[in-house]
Design a binder for these strands. Sequence first.
DNA 1: GGCCTAATTGTTAGCGCTAACATATTTTGC
DNA 2: GCAAAATATGTTAGCGCTAACAATTAGGCC
Lengths: 340, 340
Amino acid sequence: MAARKPRTSVRGRVTIEEVAAAAGASTISVSRAFRGSARLSPDLRARIENAAAALGYVPDRAASALASARSMNVAVLVPSITNMVFVDMLAGIDAVLSQARYQIIMATTNYCPAEEQRQLHGLLAFRPDGVLLTGIDHLPGTLNLLKAPALPVVHMMELNHQVGSYSVGFSQDEGGAAIARHFVGRGYGRIGFVAAQLDPRTLARGAGFRRALKEAGLDAPYELMVPDRSSIALGATLLDRVLTECPDIEAVFFCNDDLAHGALFRCQRLGIAVPQRLAIAGFNDLPASSWTVPALSTVATPRHEIGRKSAAMLLDLMCGRTPEAARLDLGFTLHARESS
Amino acid sequence: MAARKPRTSVRGRVTIEEVAAAAGASTISVSRAFRGSARLSPDLRARIENAAAALGYVPDRAASALASARSMNVAVLVPSITNMVFVDMLAGIDAVLSQARYQIIMATTNYCPAEEQRQLHGLLAFRPDGVLLTGIDHLPGTLNLLKAPALPVVHMMELNHQVGSYSVGFSQDEGGAAIARHFVGRGYGRIGFVAAQLDPRTLARGAGFRRALKEAGLDAPYELMVPDRSSIALGATLLDRVLTECPDIEAVFFCNDDLAHGALFRCQRLGIAVPQRLAIAGFNDLPASSWTVPALSTVATPRHEIGRKSAAMLLDLMCGRTPEAARLDLGFTLHARESS
DNA sequence: GGCCTAATTGTTAGCGCTAACATATTTTGC
DNA sequence: GCAAAATATGTTAGCGCTAACAATTAGGCC
């Protein structure tokens, strides 16, 4: 017995056992005190907290996870953190999960489904209690990984219409359509769509844009789509190509604000009047968009709220509660500004 | 004995034991196979890998960490991830650490030393093998937390001259001085310094800026410093205040590019000619800075490289190797563009 | 008081994995 | 051909914590 009860841990860390000894309590009571459990007299709790503070005790999540089958980790997969959109979403997620004592374990997929599966596999080693995925398009293998441990999953940014799946987002397709209708309302004739980083959400925006133009009886738009990662520099480059390939263009929908900013700056540089000579619209409403001159027309997306609500929904699922709705549409807001 | 060897794990997860049984090997061999250890015949290794793949085995980091006293986690603390600078740094860190099979456990401090300590305490529950901290100014309690477990630490972004500490960065002070000398070289007379989010790095830039102006025999600059978080919107607001409070100002150094962009946009809006009427400079060289019209003069910081080198240095320390240098100065580059 | 219920605290047995120490098995040197 | 060294594989005992149960104490009521 003595061998099983070292008063000083082997590895030089303060363990629950030392705290228990110092507080004159049992290990399980220390464990309970740290998990905020009820069923502990104020006196014992105080003694334990004092002892823990004095010894500098830090709980060990690994041991806790192993013993309890709950890791209090949540795996989050986002395409990129260089994209402000996902950073805002992450902030929303963290706000809700850290409140509930969960820790985010995050990885980036680089917009690649295969990389998503690889990264998820890696994150599963943390035995997360739930998973947040960006988007609704995943490899079969990715979803398979989640089946065996029956992990709760919430899909973010898009709306998943598959039964049994949970999602929080808005209709990317409708967002694209909103820009199209705005262009139509302003009377633009020759219209273009420029996209990069052709992820499912970008493509959905393009589809909605096209559909709405068609519904309004207009010609199919001029389209320029490249697989490269979106950036301001790429937006500038693509604007040049648009002007070369389609000189009579009147309005262009750039699939996101990064590209639109690049195009806007390029127009300034070239002395092209926006919106008189060329109207420009973006998507997402980044902070810069309302400050550029001219201010950028764009669709504001509720990404922070998407993060919050996704986390809340996952929290429900992880606690065995049934979320109010399996699909939460948070909508979007068209901001018609000076650039169109 | 039979009770200690369940062929199917209690929790429905595939365990190392089931893989071992399926491959006709011992558990330790499976463990060795997954840690890429040598001392395994190609035949056994193949059998284990096949069995693991067939069963869908995912290792359990919690159990591994508990058994081995190595978590393969690295705790990283950054002020914010809404700031591109730290995102770039994180990308550099991740590139190196994921290569070495380490996982980043990240938290944000919101530029607050007390929050840094709180978050570090939380991350220590992951028993990280090393820690990366942003900056060199920390609460005594923060450093104390790292003392007991004798955790390797590398400080990022600034250079720490304290003996026994490791840091990778550049001289923020010199960066500020570089802008000052640039302004002096261009012959500007009435000069200003505008700062927000007064973290130690911002203050160091200001100090260097001031020092260099003094060395050049100029008057002390007009200064406007506010504690708010930096943003484009704030940059625009502060520009208005600068013009009101100091109408004859000729050149302003904004402590970062976000503020400078806001100021630049505001000048465009107000019809203030940059740099003719007012010269503007920023700090960090964000992607937009070379595309704005006029292009923004700024100091490019090697933040991605700082991330890479910090991670590499920490890797050395975690493996018990001694890094080549305890302090790595990666410098910076002044980009004198159109705005000044 | 005596009996019951409820609240509080403790004991025991692992969670899944790996370090440290055996134990085969093969290779090498002479 | 045989001991010594090198290589390959296995056995055992926990890592620090918590679930499940057990035991103890306090409170309530007639």
